[in-house]
């Protein structure tokens, strides 16, 4: 109860603090540069000053937070990657040298590549297929809602759910993991899926695909519905078959959206960490960059230099998408 009360108190203080800032700073500005009942020149001058200051009152907290939590850390990570484990001593490029001679890094890198190829492809593909099919059946919305549901589940929760599916009992015991039960039912040998080198990566990827397909489906479904009916009707009149219409008329029209879905999932995959941490913690050849980075942050009291180097590798992989996004956004704003 005490915990609840103090939590409530801190919540209220935190939220009130924000409100007071915005309210107070704006009223203060109006008080310092009044625009009511003043001679015209004064009004004009005060108004000009106030109009120049006010955007920064509105933006201030956001800019500060973005700087402290994103801008500055990115710069500092780059700096730290040239320093030793505690971040005090300059060590040149030795962290990078270490990284490129490190077997675990290559394992993670390979696995990450595998994830990058499989997960966005499968999620987008399945999402597109499901979106197309659910759009033409009467219970499509219910189906969509159920397939979308894993979106709400944490990666760690999803990991528990799937670990249960992959559960393995040795010997003749009854299998309580669904996957092994099915294998046994068809007369196969139960397997310990999670420790099976190479293939276990795919069993982990299934979890992310399970979570992300709903996202792809929702967005692609909206895009599909945005296709003008006339183009499809025209294709029907031109004698195109269903498959032809899908691939030659519909898919080209939502190409942009497919790219957006793809890149969004790609970014997510690069950051995936919880699933690997929970399922294997990188054992049995399943390490990925994000988990390796986390590992180095805390391993033996933490090695900030090496952790930072791994983070930079992730960042470098993101940069092309970032540039593409900014270009796209700029083009869009000019169109407004």
């Amino acid at each position: 109860m005490a915990q609840l009360a103090s939590a409530l108190m801190t919540m209220i203080v935190g939220i009130l603090g924000c409100v007071v800032y915005f309210y107070g700073s704006n009223i203060l500005l109006d008080k310092i540069f009044p625009t009511k009942n003043r001679p015209a020149q004064d009004v004009a001058r005060n108004l000009r000053i106030a109009n120049n200051v006010r955007p920064w009152l509105f933006l201030g907290p956001a800019v500060l937070l973005l700087t402290f939590y994103l801008f500055y850390p990115v710069i500092d990570s780059i700096r730290l990657s040239f320093f030793d484990r505690s971040g005090d001593e300059f060590v040149g490029i030795s962290n990078y040298v270490w990284l490129f001679g490190n077997d675990e890094f290559f394992e993670s890198f390979q696995n990450n590549m595998l994830w990058l190829i499989v997960v966005p492809t499968m999620s987008t593909f399945l999402g597109l297929v499901i979106a197309t099919m659910t759009d033409r059946i009467w219970w499509g919305n219910i189906a969509k809602s159920l397939i979308f549901m894993p979106m709400a589940i944490s990666f760690i929760g999803a990991s528990v759910i799937w670990k249960f599916i992959y559960d393995f009992r040795s010997g003749g015991d009854a299998q309580i993991g669904l996957l092994n039960a099915i294998v046994v039912f068809f007369g196969g040998e139960p397997q310990n899926w999670i420790t099976m080198p190479f293939w276990n990566n795919f069993f982990l990827m299934v979890i992310l695909i399970w979570v992300q397909t709903g996202f792809a489906m929702v967005i692609l479904s909206a895009a599909l519905r945005g296709i003008p009916d006339e183009t499809i009707e025209a294709a029907v009149l031109d004698g195109a078959s269903g498959v032809q219409i899908f691939f030659k008329i519909m898919v080209p029209q939502i190409w942009g959206t497919i790219a957006v879905v793809w890149t969004t999932i790609t970014i997510l995959v690069l950051k995936v960490f919880d699933i690997v941490l929970a399922m294997t913690n990188g054992q049995w050849d399943t390490q990925v960059l994000a988990n390796q980075m986390f590992d180095w942050m805390f391993r033996g009291g933490g090695d900030f230099g090496r952790g930072a180097v791994v983070a930079i590798v992730i960042m470098v992989m993101v940069i092309p998408i970032m540039v593409w996004n900014i270009k796209r956004a700029n083009a869009e704003m000019e169109g407004r």
Binding site: T35, A40, V43, A44, L47, R48
Partner: peptide, 11 residues
């Protein structure tokens, strides 16, 4: 009769 170039709309 007043120059209003810099006067805000409301005034």
């Amino acid at each position: 009769g007043q120059v209003v170039n810099d006067v805000p709309p409301a005034l």
